[in-house]
Design a protein around this nucleic acid. Sequence first.
DNA 1: TGACAAACTATCCTTTTGTATAGTATCTAT
DNA 2: ATAGATACTATACAAAAGGATAGTTTGTCA
Lengths: 202, 202
Amino acid sequence: MEPLSTRQEEILKFLAHYQAEHGFPPTAREIAGHFGFKSHKAAVDHVKALERKGYLQLHKGKSRGMEITSNYPSFSGIIPVVGRIGAGTPIFAIENLEETLKIDSSLFSRGECFAVRVKGDSMIEAHIKDGDYVILKRQDYAENGDIAGIVMGDEVTLKYYYKRKGRIELVPANPKLKPIIIEPGSESLQIAGIMVGLIRRR
Amino acid sequence: MEPLSTRQEEILKFLAHYQAEHGFPPTAREIAGHFGFKSHKAAVDHVKALERKGYLQLHKGKSRGMEITSNYPSFSGIIPVVGRIGAGTPIFAIENLEETLKIDSSLFSRGECFAVRVKGDSMIEAHIKDGDYVILKRQDYAENGDIAGIVMGDEVTLKYYYKRKGRIELVPANPKLKPIIIEPGSESLQIAGIMVGLIRRR
DNA sequence: TGACAAACTATCCTTTTGTATAGTATCTAT
DNA sequence: ATAGATACTATACAAAAGGATAGTTTGTCA
């Protein structure tokens, strides 16, 4: 595959995200609106560049007439399994991918999904076993009681998320392990996503 | 789900097919064209009926603005979810299908797979929760310690399978429930398959 | 230096598409 | 009997969206 510029990758990512979110692709004007372009021609140019490089197939004359052709993880609904993630590096950077699950992510959620492989028994009382793949929907916030994927160092760990009296509690589903309590004012935590599903093999 | 008329089912099927083919939904005029309607209003009416019955979500004012919301039996291979099964009827008979999971079964096993939706907590200590989909590989025997899908009446239930001293024990993963013991010579039990995977939503 | 890709703004025109109004005909359940 | 759903035809109009032309700016590669 021909390499993409930073901007083109952003565009492609947005296309995949919009498609996952809405069930149909965006129009040139919607793309322009999202990125703040004042002329939709800019979006047309990007989309054409993506077609030329083989990432898209365009259908001339048809509204929203585009298909993402690439098998690139996280595009086309396939769920990438994330191993380690560097502090700053985006979660979908290629170097972080361990494998992919050939599953249409729409089974679990609209929106962009990824998976982490569970190590250990910290969520055993939520019936999440060692070796299970937990499917997470990518979002940077969580509701009370959600099982959230939290970025800790260079890994994603799973915890129940609670916000009580202004402080955030990250509670494992295992009585042997202690909750992590984040007092207000301390450095913020980074939520990678919330659990929307689980896959177990064997 | 509300029942669909024959025509409405044809329309929905076409929508799913078109979406799978093209990556985006059809317009009302394209639907009309496919069915030979001379007025695209007919297609609009059908699509609105499908929305009213909950099979579609429409996005007003947006071209191709529709999403299929149901898990409408689709077209790619994929795992059927079996509800009840009549004594003689084959497990894959259409009347038994409740829904399908859009997952390539090769993720779990080489053989033929199907799924049952778990009711209750009888396998809770194996970390199989109420509502989980358990993926079974179709076979009529089991090894010691396998989690097997057993045909009981007109349903499939899950049990640990053990063969000890000539008799077969079907053990739930819940201390509150008693094992079923089948003495040698009594009527044979029917194994539908053995567990090869699990899918949990939410 | 010159060609080319990338990344845009601005404007115009045409086609595509959604939505609306006005009908016709058949069937079904109350 | 009659109201409602189903299943269409026909036509008109406005909004949505694609496509094209003409330009600016900033890089990079050779």
